[in-house]
Design a binder for these strands. Structure first.
Lengths: 265, 265
DNA sequence: GACGTTACTTTATGGCGTAAGGAGACGGCA
DNA sequence: TGCCGTCTCCTTACGCCATAAAGTAACGTC
């Protein structure tokens, strides 16, 4: 798990918000060689590494190498790795849309939001590994939350009711996306596809635990009855399930929100 | 993130299920010195380290040291670190209760389950960092799922409907618990309490972003109106919020389940 | 041309997982 | 009784990691 930088918080904040006030990011510093890099370039390189190779492969060396520099060169621009991760996190959140149409009602809007967020996480799975406690407090993180709140306040619900709803929505989307993200990461890092992995394991289970069906009857029932229908053979089993969990889980939460609305009338 | 062992899956499975069939875990192997350790002892030491110092501090050296051995001594019993983590994970899941009373209805039972699971995660926060894709497939993990399914099938809902419900429940509980877990981990590893951290950051925010209230009006509204009431001063702010998110989020999901039940009648 | 500042490098420290090989303990057999 | 094969556990070593410290070279100003 990667934590928010424990270094000078003032410097972290200035970096996140690209502080332009006097005393913030320095402009035209005179002596010395011209900087070949910049915070932006480094953050972008970090995102590229994390997107391509995953969070586990994100090292200062790897980022430096991608820019033709050593790891230590980065420390001129960024206090350390955890601050770099914070900056990457907030930067990549800028991709999230913030213009949702409420004309078709809050439920349709929140569903679009969830869909966009889901796709965002699958595009940048490493984001799911950035710690959520002690939030990064960057501009794009705040903007993303503000966007969701605009949709939820359209329900007419109280702030006190909305608070856990925000949490539930975020957790359901993140949780389901995490399953896909980790599954892909595992496939990439081991070279074994989900299908092959599952086949090998389930075969072994039968061998090692012959009385499985008697010990876990409900599990077998859920597995055999409730499987998501195969609509596209190209999508592996685990991802199909995660997608169904995402859609179904979202629907359950939104049903709960509707119940809360009905209750206040 | 820690992935399931990519070593010999047969060996992993045998370890997880403590295979006693011929060819499984060997009994009375003759020559050589008597083993002073055992898989059980090592797994327990690993759990102790992770409970006390967090997943980040779990190293083969640390576990060995706790047993008065070197890191390499563990490799006689366990193929590698990721398998050890799998074993720790499944072992600690044995703590979860599996006898819930359905007499007061499924909703009360699921609420107790959620409460127990919540407490379990706070007791062993490192569990939240074990990868969920490619599940460990150990006996206690299956038992835990079977337990929850027994409560959910009492709703009378279809397997296909129940599947995403399981996901949503697990994600809401895990997500909220993760917030507390990461917050405590951050406090422990940096020595800065949530309160102090937040105070420092929010002060700096005001300084760096003076127009915050105009840029993020809904966020300010949620923050000022929706805060969880202070019932116990000993519980820090962030944990109080996470607890409210847990309770409220659970209620929203269960309301959604009730809506699904009503729909099928 | 000298000087102070800056960008970036090299080197070093102390962590990690784990491969390889060696030391010593022990049961079974001669 | 002593040897042998096997087993536990150790030391050593390798290649990663983040990053501290110190050195080198480029550059604007004087």
């Amino acid at each position: 798990m990667v934590f928010a930088g424990q270094g000078d918080p003032r410097r972290s904040m200035a970096l996140l918000w690209r502080d332009e006030r006097p005393g913030g990011t320095r402009t035209r510093q005179w002596p010395g060689p011209k900087p070949a890099l910049s915070v932006e370039v480094i953050v972008r390189a970090g995102i590229a590494v994390a997107d391509a190779e995953g969070m586990a492969a994100l090292s200062m060396r790897a980022v430096g190498e991608r820019l033709g520099r050593t790891a230590m060169a980065l420390y001129t621009y960024v206090p350390g790795k955890s601050e770099l991760v914070d900056l990457m996190y907030d930067q990549v959140l800028a991709e999230l849309p913030d213009d949702y149409d409420l004309a078709a009602g809050w439920r349709a809007a929140v569903t679009s939001w969830a869909e966009d967020t889901w796709e965002f996480y699958l595009r940048h799975p490493w984001v799911l590994q950035v710690s959520q406690a002690r939030p990064v407090l960057g501009p794009h993180e705040y903007r993303a939350l503000e966007t969701l709140l605009a949709l939820l306040y359209a329900t007419g619900l109280d702030s006190a009711v909305l608070r856990p709803v925000v949490g539930a929505l975020v957790h359901v989307v993140r949780g389901a996306a995490r399953t896909v993200a980790e599954s892909r990461a595992a496939a990439a890092s081991t070279g074994v596809s989900d299908e092959d992995w599952w086949l090998a394991r389930s075969g072994m289970l039968e061998e090692v635990v012959p009385d499985f069906a008697e010990r876990f009857p409900l599990l077998v029932r859920l597995e055999t009855e409730g499987a998501a229908p195969v609509t596209d053979d190209a999508v592996p089993y685990l991802e199909r399930e995660a997608r169904a969990t995402f859609e179904g889980g979202l629907a359950v939460v939104l049903d709960g929100v509707e119940a809360a609305i009905r209750r206040t009338h």
